Each structure stands twice: as C-alpha cells, then as structure tokens.
Simulated assay, not measured.
Amino acid sequence: MFLWGVAGAGYQSEGAAPDSNWSRFVTGYQNSVDFLHRYPQDIELAAHLGVEVFRLCVEWARVQQVPGEWDFEFYDDVVAKVRAAGMRPMITLDHWVYPAWTGGWRNPKMVELWLANADRVIKRYAGNGTIWITFNEPTVYMAHEMRQGRFSPMMPSRLVQAHKGAYRLIHEADPQALVSSNVAYIPVVNRLVDFGFLDWIERYLDFVGIDYYYDVTPGNLTAMHGATGKLYKIDPEPKGIYRALKHYARRFPRLPLYIVENGMPTDNGQPRPDGYTRSDHLRDHVFWMQQAQSEGVHVLGYNYWSLTDNFEWGSYRPRFGLYTVDVQTDPVLVRQPTDAVETYREIIMSGLPDDYRPKR
C-alpha cells in the first residue's frame, strides 16, 4: 500500500519554545503557528485530506526541560488524536533541536543522554504502525551546528552511534517498525555531502527517506538561492524528484524509498511571478514520482511539507503550507487553505488524470 502523508516539526510549528540550542539565539520566533494549542484542528485538517501518515517531532527539549524529568502529556494527546483520526504517526526523534542543558554534540555524554530520551519516546509510542525518523537531514543538521559555532568533529560519529542505538531500541519494541534517517537531496554535491552517514548506517535502515525540493540543470541554476535562505526564488525542477529517486535506488538497491518531504515555498504567501501554482507543483512532482515507480523504483510513500506554514529556521517569509498562516499580522492564526488542498485530496482519492502532463 502506498502511503500519502503530511509533515511538520516541533520547534517550527509548536510555539512557546522551551530552552534549547535554537531558542538561545533565534529572534522573532513569537509563537509560530501555535500547534501547541491548535493541534486538534491541524490533525483534523490533515485527516480531511485523506492522508494516512502524519509526521511530527517529539521534541526532546519540550519533554525533558530539566535533567532527569520527562513530561509527555502534550505528545500523548497528539499521538492519540493522530491515531484516532485514522493516521499513522511518523515520529522524528531529532529535528535539529536539543535541550540547552545538554551542551549539544560536543558533550562526550550526548549519545547516552540522547538515547535515554529516545528509549522513553520509543517505548511510549512504538507499535500500531508508527514509522520512525531518527535524525532529520543529518548533514544539514551538522551545517547548522557549524554556523552557530557548536559543531564538534565527533558529531558525525556520534550521530551514527545514536542512530544505530535507536534502531535497535525501536526493533526491540516493534520488530515490524520502519526506521530511517531522512536525507536532503542537494543537487550537484549530493553524493559528497551524504557520503559517509547513509553508508555507515545502511544496515540500520528499513527505507531511505528523501527530502526533495530542488535540482540543478544547465538551464536552471536558481538552486543557488538555497544557500541564502531565499528558497522562494528557486525555480522548481519537478523532474528532479525522478532523478533523486533513481539515484537512491541505484545506491541502495535493497531498500525501498520514501519521499519524507517535498513542497514549494512562496514569498510570504504571494503568488509566484511566473504563475506556477502550488497545485501545479504538487501534480508535477507526483507525476515524476510515479514515473520512477513505473520503472521499478519501490517508493513506499510521499509526505507534503508542510501541512501549515511554519518558522523556517529564522524567518516566516518562506511559506510552504498547504494551509497558509500569517504569523506576523494575524493574531488569530487562521489556517487559510491554498489551492493545493483540494488538489492533494483529489490526488489521494483518484490519482492524476491518465492524460496529465507536467506544467513544467
């Protein structure tokens, strides 16, 4: 069975951020889209789309705000409501955020601390179809740590050690579970930036999770805007998702693939100047994903990033949401559906029309 889903992350959407590596230096966070209090509504919106998977993060910084003390009340209700709505949780253990008191990956005891938290999360939510992501985009995670002066040369090996430990814990709790660490497909240098991590953990993966947003071709070099955070200036390259899937199918022929994240940012919610819509983007990427499937690539599922707009690691300007939310000017934080809401529902229910051809 193919799984359709939506995705989000704790720090980016919850608001009321506890003390963490991010809360100590980010400004302008406000309360993001306040998933912390509006999660019943957002889960209902996801269920109305017809998706089977709801990706969330059980934020370590929230559940263990002081050493030795855990509080899972919030996530208990989130996971319960996701399951009650007929969806499977896809739980991310680490989406680049950790409690500030840990000291981060420079701490020689970080793996031990990280796994102690992971053990509690896993034992609490394993089973009933839960899918697991250990580390979100580990190479990008390390790049963030470098920019903030918190990187340790030991971080790569410690992430590998933590992933392997979590993999074992998950399969002890649920032998049938699917576990991965999703990788960011970065054009041109992709083979270099993820070399090592995926290869080191290959035997500890049940699928390869792929985040695809853009590619580079001779006629489209706009991906360079990704380095400046101006993601809305990148011209989408839908066929790139086909190339990404074929690339990972060749590299890891024994493993199925899953598009864990795919979406299109707009500039503060405004229409793109070229007229390319979120619906166009969604249909085109699904078309090329299905083209790869028709050629024998085993794809387990697809998650749209993201259900709602959120805090893009320093800015609210890039808007990725199926539902747009104007954090900076709307105190009520209304979830406004974009054109892609109905499009995604139609794709899930009926697929693309047989005669569909990509807009670009």
Rank of each mutant, 00 (worst) to 15 (best):
W4E: 08
A7E: 08
G8P: 01
A9R: 04
A9G: 12
Y11M: 06
E14C: 08
G15Y: 06
G15L: 12
N21H: 04
W22R: 05
T27H: 13
T27D: 13
Y29K: 09
Y29F: 14
Q30L: 15
S32Q: 14
V33A: 06
D34C: 02
H37S: 14
R38L: 14
Q41P: 01
D42T: 10
I43A: 09
L45R: 13
H48I: 00
G50K: 06
F54K: 03
C57E: 15
W60D: 04
R62C: 00
Q65S: 00
P67I: 02
D71I: 09
D71N: 15
V82Y: 08
R83Y: 10
A84C: 10
P89W: 10
P89Q: 11
Y98I: 11
W101D: 12
P108E: 12
K109Y: 12
N117G: 10
I122P: 01
I122D: 04
Y125D: 09
N128V: 04
I131N: 06
N136S: 05
V140K: 02
M146R: 13
M146G: 02
R147E: 13
G149I: 07
M154D: 14
A166P: 03
R168G: 11
L169P: 02
P175A: 12
Q176A: 15
L178P: 00
S180A: 14
Y185F: 10
I186S: 08
V189L: 12
N190E: 07
V193I: 13
D199E: 15
I201A: 08
R203T: 13
L205W: 00
D206Q: 04
D206N: 11
V208K: 01
V208Q: 04
I210K: 06
H225Y: 15
G229F: 06
K230S: 07
D235Y: 11
Y242C: 01
R243W: 13
L245V: 01
K246I: 05
K246S: 04
K246Q: 13
H247F: 14
H247M: 09
A249E: 08
Y258D: 06
V260A: 15
V260S: 14
N262W: 02
P271A: 01
P271F: 04
R272F: 02
R272H: 10
Y276Q: 12
T277F: 05
D280Y: 11
D280T: 02
H281L: 03
H281P: 03
L282E: 03
R283A: 02
H285E: 08
S294D: 14
G301M: 04
L307R: 07
L307V: 03
T308N: 09
E312Y: 09
W313R: 09
S315K: 02
G321T: 13
T324L: 04
V332Q: 14
L333M: 01
V334E: 12
Q336C: 07
A340T: 12
T343R: 05
